[in-house]
Design a protein around this nucleic acid. Structure first.
Lengths: 223, 223
DNA sequence: TATTGTGAACCTGTTCACAGCA
DNA sequence: TGCTGTGAACAGGTTCACAATA
């Protein structure tokens, strides 16, 4: 392995990275309930995983627990928040202020979990008259200026599918390097830009697959 | 307990199941463009995966291609739709008609991808006066009746986090066996009930983690 | 003692490379 | 010949079981 691993820069498996936010949320819940200390078993239950996986995941960050005792909730919460990078807020722009864009703009979870919506953009001049969640909707052409002004590196696409690739291209050109995409379909972006996709009908179709199998579990179909 | 494996019921790896809807969407796009036949390379590009993975995935369904030629777009589309179980519509109920519930109710992608929203439910009597996407919002107490009447097995939770577990419990009691949950936090459900979770701030936090690493990429140099 | 942290075993998913077939 | 379908090698992720230790 590489000889120097500076204190905070071990490489954490992707599957673990995807669970850290879940642990963080569970720790916040425990803290709110007044819990000062928890075992890996308790935290794992709160996060919906098994304790061996939780301990393995945490071991990639460092040794933040105490053998025979457990974890200090506040301390571990801070360490995970720091590892994820949400000890201060990330500025975010949302493009596409239709039904979904409205819902996202109004979602209070962003603000409390390390993100601040700094602009809402839409290509439709009619929508640019609106004020949503206390923020005026501005022209998509303002993207470059806003990205520079607020140092934005994360963008959210909530447009119809047909516009998504163009929006992504312009986000990348403006300097955005992480995109959360709610539009269906595949986005093509340059190396170094991260895209995560949320597709509602894909999620339902995965459920439908399993549902279908439950229905035919006892039956044998011979078509 | 899998003594018999009837022709259509091979066990498909979970990772493959999660990609079948992506392939289906890519095939629909190709069909709409008038493409009659495609190679694994073309379909893989359209779906955003590599061709070896695509072929491996399709091999779990059967041999639907022609060596030296490729795949018939319409035929493969039908086979995948049948495998997922979306050759006819699944009735779905949405609970929690706030901002997100509105957006989901109005999302046209559901109807065109194998799902039909049969009811919108909310615990708040004020919301029950509304009509959203042409469907009246009804009392959450009507859940049992609606599930039986329409044969619903899939439910969507778009309530605040605090209500989600109660809604899930009542869905399960009513006979629902698949849940798509947009509320943050862990849901506990009995064996046999599938839950998929969509959590917006978790997705953003995963992006933030990688974004943070990009920012410090120049600091540590190895190899 | 009670619980963490972790090597080792195991399992799942991905990629390679080519045999098999139209 | 060209492209699919697939065994085999590989990589990544999960679970086990126990040594380390407050």
């Amino acid at each position: 392995m590489s000889a120097r691993t500076p204190e905070s820069a071990r490489d954490i498996p992707e599957a673990t990275v995807a669970r850290l936010p879940v642990y963080l949320r569970a720790l916040i819940t425990l803290a709110d309930e007044g819990t000062a200390t928890c075992s890996s078993e308790e935290l794992a239950t709160a996060a919906g995983v098994n304790s061996a996986k939780l301990r393995k995941d945490l071991s990639y960050l460092g040794s933040y627990g105490t053998r025979g005792v457990g974890y200090d909730v506040e301390y571990l919460r801070y360490q995970i928040a720091r590892e994820i990078g949400v000890t201060q807020d990330w500025p975010v722009v949302i493009v596409g202020i239709g039904n979904l864009g409205h819902a996202l703009a109004n979602y209070s979870g962003f603000r409390s979990r390390g993100f601040r919506v700094v602009a809402l953009l839409d290509a439709d001049p009619v929508r640019q008259a609106e004020v949503v969640a206390g923020i005026d909707v501005r022209s998509f052409d303002d993207l470059d200026r806003i990205v520079v002004e607020h140092g934005v590196s994360i963008g959210v696409i909530a447009t119809p599918a047909v516009a998504a690739q163009d929006v992504a291209d312009r986000m990348v050109a403006a300097g955005i390097t992480s995109i959360l995409n709610f539009a269906p379909g595949v986005l093509t972006v340059p190396e170094g830009v991260d895209v995560r996709k949320v597709d509602l009908s894909i999620e339902l179709q995965i459920l439908a697959y399993h549902e279908q199998r439950k229905a035919t579990a006892g039956t044998e179909d011979a078509s």
